[in-house]
Design a protein around this nucleic acid. Sequence first.
DNA 1: CAAACTGG
Length: 859
Amino acid sequence: MEQAQVYENVDLQIIKLLFNSDGSDYKVYAVRILNPHPELKMTLTQEITVTGDMGYYNRRAIITADLVYDDADSLRYRKPSYKVARLHFGLPKEPRRQWQLIDTLLVHQPTVLRRLHDYFADDAPILTIFSKDEIKTARIPGVGPATVQKIATAIRGKLEVAVLANHWGKALSSMTYEKIWLAYKDAELAMQHVDANPYILMQVAQLDFKKVDAFAKSRGVAPNDSHRLAAGLQYIFRTAVLTQGLTYITITWFKEQAATLLGVSTDDLTMFADPKQALAYGFLLNEQYDLVTSCDMFATEGSVARIMAVAQKTAEPLIKPAELDEKLDKFLDRHQLVINDQQRAAFQNVNQHGLSVLNGSAGTGKTWLTNLLVHFFNAQAKGKSVLLAPTGRAAKVLARYTHEPAATIHAYLHLLPGEELDRFDAEADWETFGDARLIIVDESSMLTTPLAYTVLKNVNFKKAHVLFVGDVFQLPPIGPGNFLKDCLADDHVAATTLTRVYRQDSQSGVLALANRIRDRLALPFGPDDDRYVSGNVALYNQRDAGRVFDAGIKAYQEALAKHGHQPDSQLLIVNKNIGATGRLRFNAELQALVNPARAGEPEYVSSYVDPVTNQKHHLRLNDRVMILKNDKHVALVDPKTWERRAVLGENGLQKTDEFGTKRWRETIMANGDTGVVAHIDPKRHFLVVQVGNQYCYYSFGSVPRALTLAYAITVHKAQGGQADTVIAIVNGADRMLNAQSFYTALTRTQSQFIFFGDFRVLLARTKIYPIDSRHDLLGSLLSGQLTVDTFSRFTFEQILTWLDHQRHQGIQPRAAITAAKPEAATQPFAVRYTEQLDILNQVVEKVTKLPVKKATGEG
DNA sequence: CAAACTGG
């Protein structure tokens, strides 16, 4: 085999970042070569691209690398491309290169730079000088001690990253070294902590378990090392249990999976034999039913169950129940409205119960009724309602419909994704929901139990009631729990289910088919039928994926020819992004057919090649696009001149309203909104997307993260949207398909539903209801089958106390970072475990002395 | 495998 030529010690200056892959360190930079090698291929301006696992570098940064020529990438970027074989850390030795580095370091302080050049000789090793302690006492004319200190610290950072890189070698990426140094700001401390427990890197450098595990293995950590087991068991529970929607699993299954996935014998998994040890690892065992769950998940589900019980006990009616009917009738008279009995029941539920649910499928008037509820209780209950939703798009729709402010749960509660337990800038005296009397959460089918918990734990049920609105037959959340279903199954939760359909013609085929699925009846056709056509539904049996694809394209073109390029006129719904009938392939093909490139017309072309499709992204005038970001702050463009004209919206908190409730800026552009490309300016590198009647500015640089083609979309993204003609596609090997996903696609239809796919697959998969197979403990806790105090060997108070203790001790890596250096260079988990056990025993002893609350019998 | 959330 031909040996690749390595070009060593090439100094490169970063020009720009061309491609940045999320979730990995793979980057593509355009760079300038500072010390040209005679054999290197390069452009006239000495430019090349470099690719590989690198840290993030700012423009003008200088790096030193060994390079290997990369023929394939050279075709992609129209420049000779090189792979980074090795990065050299630390300070360059030659004075000339040291000066180059300090030039880039001080690019924004030209005066300081000039004074350094004046004071030091050109052949002085400037970085080496600044890395010595003596620099503190040096007197450089015109450069103050604070500035000297700043430069020295920056250089020390570079040196310390080099120390880390030297210590661990190629086992970790340069990005990781930078993150570790930033976390500890002390190389020695970092090495001690990471060597003692490599798995701490999962938090420190946001690496996943598999990456850290490979690193730990290369460092000689044994497969049955306690740190490894602790991290590995949590990882398996998160990836194999919680993402399936489950919140617990059988001990037997978990033990077997853990042994297989971690490559250890079941004898090594000692936590399963000892409830106390399991607790130290963060798990709870229920030996009676052979169940195991994580402490965190149990605390969440248990807290939700408790809060729901409290809600029912402490809530007082918003207005006097005796007056409700009279006031409601007056309200309806004044607005000339009529409601049915189901809808009236919803008013009574909301008025009387701390927690209630409004359930109903598409077209039953949920949104219409929600609007009435908001305005009725706003007028009658002396305190404005707070409107929330799990997604930006749902919040936007709710705000538009009610003409009241609505926000995402995260935006309203000041939560950062992934850190929902704490507000990022909590004000001590801020009562979350102010004097609000009613909190409405729309699209509640998308709520995981942890997200429902973040809402519920902030509610004072003496003041306010909560209403969850949703359609339990839509897609369940991607994440643990089945919150809406559990609410509906619980006798104590006041639920209204709307069944009368107003939107669809009751004779329509779509409605009939949707009802069959809801009622769990067999679909009205066989696996070998050619087609099923009834009313506005047409399903075609097609087994070959290639033909399914072609049929979908053809149906879309026909719908387009009939109805034109109107928003919401036609929509192609798929189950997956990638694959032969995936979203990306459909969009590429539909764009080429529906909106092909025309000579002389401006185009947006991405500067990189999409690693999934192996193509560059193109956007042209009139392309249908979907917006992927929630924005409360949007630059608008004048559609006559295409000049930027105004900025709509502001970030952050609005003023307190007359009821003392904090109000929030609305989401102007939401993830999931669709629009049309209205203008492209290739010279000034921006394009304009028309969404509704607004023209929004997107710089070319923001396009990859902000926009995607929207001819075809996944069924998840289609939730909450409607189209006249819906074309649904099912691939023979579609594991995403189930009754709820098909139901969701079906109920997006306003006039015509067309389906292409294998009837055998459709018939088999629509027998699967995710709602049935998602097991959680919340349902059992609400029904009284389980109680929080008797699920495991520990009472709920003991579990919460233990979690609280763990959060404040060095077990959590974030706390470990701020903690003092460990006494010994390595501190095995076994040693720590006995300490933990002592503390655990103290905790258990202490809390058992507290008055024990019984589950029942207090009232 | 599917997706949601934010701030600077």
